[in-house]
């Protein structure tokens, strides 16, 4: 009895069922849906947004938001890609990640030292970083001559993304940092009273989001073999959508990485399924909009 009473429905269950239902319908109507070619294509499609979404999840759980993730990805790819195309692959990868972390530190600095609301700080950072990226590259395409093809071929992008999800889940669930992230998102004042430093935790979270933007930049370059400043401008809303579909509350304090993973899954499957069933592209956006609301309602019902 005790066990049953204590059992709570996992928060991700409703959206997981939604994802499974979508996959089941597609798999039964379209035989190619579960083919390895299609799974690989979906994995590749999910990689960039998926990696960004893990960082975004942590940021949103602290009660913040990061509108600059796609811009950070673009700037790190262009900075690092320049070195990689010049033959310095290792240095270039380092520079990519370092640029991401630096951009994250810029956000974190504005939010903690400048005490700015995250949405304002990162909206400002979005403008600054994106235009810097375009001006820095002079609008040129960076070619990396297959030097990162290891990261972009076959199932590698999917595997890397899954590894990031697992790592993100472990950090958020089983480490002190993760517990503190939930604590300051739930109630910053009481977290502070409990001896947690919100500034340090937030700094770490925004820098982490920057690091993941750098990693996403490497994977994206690996997949595309080229990079150009406007290549990922859709990713910001894509990442936020995945996180909120995944049931993470924009008010902070609750949410989970597995939920985000399901959110990424839903949007990826929707995009792929729309093409498989031959849905007119004009309807696809409307369907995606409806799906976000349905997922949100499912999550809302669970809470009741």
């Amino acid at each position: 009895m005790e066990v049953i009473r204590k059992y709570k429905m996992p928060r991700e269950l409703p959206i997981l069922l939604f994802l499974i239902a979508m996959c089941a319908v597609l798999a039964t109507t379209k035989s190619t849906f579960l083919s390895s070619d299609n799974l690989r294509a979906m994995g590749t499609d999910a990689a960039g947004i998926g990696i960004l979404a893990v960082g975004m999840t942590a940021v949103i759980i602290t009660g913040g938001i990061d509108l600059s993730v796609a811009a950070m990805l673009a700037l790190s790819a262009l900075v690092g890609g320049g070195l990689i195309s010049g033959g310095q692959t290792a240095a270039g990868c380092g520079a990519t990640l370092a640029t991401g972390v630096a951009c994250g530190a810029f956000n974190g600095g504005l939010i903690t030292l400048g005490r700015m609301p995250p949405i304002i700080a990162t909206l400002g950072a979005l403008y600054i970083i994106q235009s810097t990226a375009t001006l820095y590259s002079g609008g040129q395409v960076v070619y990396i001559d297959n030097r990162l093809s290891l990261l972009g071929g076959g199932f590698v992008p999917l595997v890397v993304t899954l590894m990031v999800f697992v790592a993100g889940h472990v950090v958020m669930r089983f480490t002190r940092l993760g517990r503190h992230v939930y604590a300051i998102g739930g109630n910053e004042e009481s977290a502070r009273l409990a001896g947690i430093s919100p500034a340090r935790i937030k700094m770490a979270v925004y820098m982490g989001a920057g690091l993941l933007a750098g990693l996403a930049a490497l994977v994206t370059m690996g997949i595309n073999n080229t990079f150009q400043a406007n290549d990922v401008s859709d990713y910001m809303l894509g990442a936020i959508a995945a996180v909120v579909i995944g049931g993470t509350s924009i008010m902070g304090g609750e949410g989970s990485v597995p939920g985000t993973m399901i959110g990424v899954g839903i949007s990826t499957v929707l995009r792929n399924g729309a093409i498989l069933v031959g849905l007119d592209a004009r309807w696809t956006q409307a369907v995606i909009g409806a799906a976000i609301v349905i997922a949100a309602i499912a999550d809302r019902l669970r809470r009741r």
């Binding site: 590749t44 997949i223 080229t226 290549d231 995009r271 093409i275």
Partner: peptide
Amino acid sequence: PQLAQSGMAGLLQA
């Protein structure tokens, strides 16, 4: 570019 690639991959399946 990502949507160009995944869209084409989907079309090849369809």
